[in-house]
Design a protein around this nucleic acid. Structure first.
Lengths: 219, 219
DNA sequence: CGTCGACGACAAGGACCTTCATGGCGTCAG
DNA sequence: CTGACGCCATGAAGGTCCTTGTCGTCGACG
């Protein structure tokens, strides 16, 4: 699947490009609205990730000129509430607010592509007796609903998406927390602790001392 | 596969270059950011190993100017990790913290190259009735899980990767321990002892007196 | 408009584990 | 037989992780 990333900040652009490559997308980037239009014509992406705030043409203008040929994931700043409305009116498929977390972006991108391929399907993540309905924002263990805060939910989603694999705290921080978070990784320990408490017995999140955490049934 | 190594410390540079050559990479080195840019253009590497802290251009700047054309493995100091790598990963595929162990670097390099070729892999190392799932950080003997500390795990991984070959204690120390470790090689004896105890019977790690250790079935 | 509760961030302690040095003892080779 | 080498036990030092408590912010609700 081909994704075009458009942002005028090189850092963000590269961050997104590399992250999307890591999850197996073919990525092209553009640093301005004009470039974006050219790149879209030539590259023929399945989706465009598009910053709203750019110098030459703003994201909406670019989207308009792309003329609904491609699904768009907008990147917007928090304070521009009006932008959201405009973005959705223009037929944008979705948006994320800066500063986003990488996991958030990847999930939205996948969601949009899934939607345009086979609409109205519901993503169910499952591991052992644990299941998560992402769309409904619902988590159940043995059928019993578990209430989670947003961060707890995101963390669990990330663990579920990588079930069985050991994830380092740095990795989790990089993926689940916003990219401008500058605290240290002990925050992850706390959230793992909260999750464990809410998810109950038997424990599903295992500590691999000196390495990280993983979702695994205690054999 | 071609790797470009960029570091302004000649020792580190040579250490890395030699190690990577040993595992059959074609290696070119550069001692500064500027050199790196020139060398990359001319050499066309498959991957760049890039020190973050350099005099003229720092690693991030170099990575930016390389413009995502090559995957990058960053080398960073511990205190730099929290500060700058997080969120400012300019398209880096990965990073290792100085002082690293050589095995660590080799594994990351291979992982990145494997990843960009065929993603979503799960590396399984196997020898006799012993198997290691690197991603899950899990070791089983005859299907029975074995709990290992990080160093024990790394040592076993190295032995597995070189199964059948006799490895000297010095070699093991050089590969598995961080390059600034200054104790003596008796530490290897201790860890071999720990491993043997945890892996149980029949013994898989054989002593070759006066030479080193090797993974071999006791036939 | 004020209060309250939920949530996120963070720090601090203590329990536990890992790493590593040291040195005695067994064992192998010459 | 004897020295060199490797095995193993012990313990100190430091690190990692869990758990709890606190504080500030934000939104809901009275």
């Amino acid at each position: 699947m081909k994704v075009l990333v458009v942002d005028d900040e090189p850092n963000i652009r590269a961050l997104l490009a590399e992250t999307l490559r890591l999850v197996s997308f073919e990525v092209r980037t553009a640093g301005s609205g004009r470039e974006a239009l050219a790149a879209a014509r030539e590259f023929g992406p399945d989706l465009v990730v598009l910053d709203v705030m750019m110098d030459d043409l703003d994201g909406f203008e670019v989207a308009r000129q792309l003329d609904e040929r491609y699904p768009v994931l907008f990147l917007t700043a928090r304070d521009t509430v009006e932008d959201r409305v405009r973005g959705l009116k223009l037929g944008a498929d979705d948006y994320v607010v800066k500063p986003f977390s990488l996991e958030e972006v990847v999930l939205r991108v996948k969601a949009i592509l899934r939607r345009s391929a086979a609409p109205a399907d519901r993503q169910l993540l499952r591991y052992a007796d644990l299941e998560m309905d992402v769309a409904a924002h619902e988590v159940r263990r043995r059928g019993v609903p578990v209430e989670l805060s947003p961060t707890e939910f995101n963390l669990l989603e990330y663990l579920l998406a990588n079930a069985g694999r050991v994830l380092s705290k740095a990795q989790i921080l990089d993926s689940v927390w916003r990219y401008d978070f500058d605290g240290d990784s002990s925050i992850v320990e706390s959230y793992v602790y909260y999750l464990r408490k809410k998810l109950g017995e038997p424990p599903l999140i295992q500590t691999v001392r000196g390495v990280g955490y993983t979702l695994r049934t205690p054999s």
